[in-house]
Amino acid sequence: MTVLVIQDLNVSFSTEDGELLALKDVSFEVPEQRIVGIVGESGCGKSTLINAILGLLADNGRICSGSIGFEEAELTTLSATEMQALRGQRISTVFQDPMGALNPVLSVGRQMRNIQYRSKLTRAEKDAHSVEMLRLVRIPDAEAALKRYPHQFSGGMKQRIAIAMALMMKPALLIADEPTTALDATLEVATIELLRDLQQQIGCSVLFISHHLGVIAELCDDVVVMYAGEVVERGTTRQVFNAPTHPYTARLLECDPARQTERKRELPTIPGEIPDLRQRPAGCIFASRCDQRAEACAAPPPDFALGDGHFVRCVLAEAT
Rank of each mutant, 00 (worst) to 15 (best):
residue 14 S to P: 03
residue 15 T to L: 11
residue 19 E to N: 11
residue 27 S to R: 09
residue 31 P to Y: 04
residue 36 V to T: 03
residue 44 C to F: 07
residue 48 T to L: 11
residue 49 L to K: 10
residue 51 N to D: 12
residue 56 L to T: 14
residue 60 N to G: 11
residue 63 I to K: 11
residue 68 I to D: 08
residue 87 R to P: 15
residue 87 R to F: 14
residue 87 R to E: 13
residue 113 R to Q: 01
residue 117 Y to Q: 08
residue 118 R to D: 11
residue 119 S to T: 00
residue 120 K to Y: 12
residue 121 L to I: 12
residue 138 R to A: 06
residue 145 A to L: 06
residue 151 H to R: 00
residue 152 Q to F: 04
residue 155 G to S: 04
residue 183 L to N: 10
residue 184 D to N: 00
residue 186 T to G: 05
residue 189 V to W: 13
residue 192 I to D: 07
residue 198 L to P: 01
residue 200 Q to A: 14
residue 203 G to D: 00
residue 207 L to D: 07
residue 208 F to Q: 08
residue 214 G to P: 08
residue 214 G to T: 04
residue 218 E to G: 03
residue 234 R to M: 02
residue 238 R to Y: 13
residue 246 H to T: 02
residue 249 T to N: 12
residue 259 R to E: 09
residue 263 R to K: 15
residue 268 P to C: 12
residue 269 T to G: 11
residue 273 E to P: 12
residue 280 R to S: 06
residue 280 R to C: 09
residue 283 G to Y: 12
residue 284 C to V: 01
residue 291 D to T: 14
residue 291 D to R: 13
residue 291 D to C: 08
residue 298 A to F: 05
residue 306 L to I: 14
residue 312 V to L: 04
residue 313 R to Y: 02
residue 316 L to R: 09
residue 316 L to E: 07
residue 317 A to S: 02
residue 319 A to H: 04
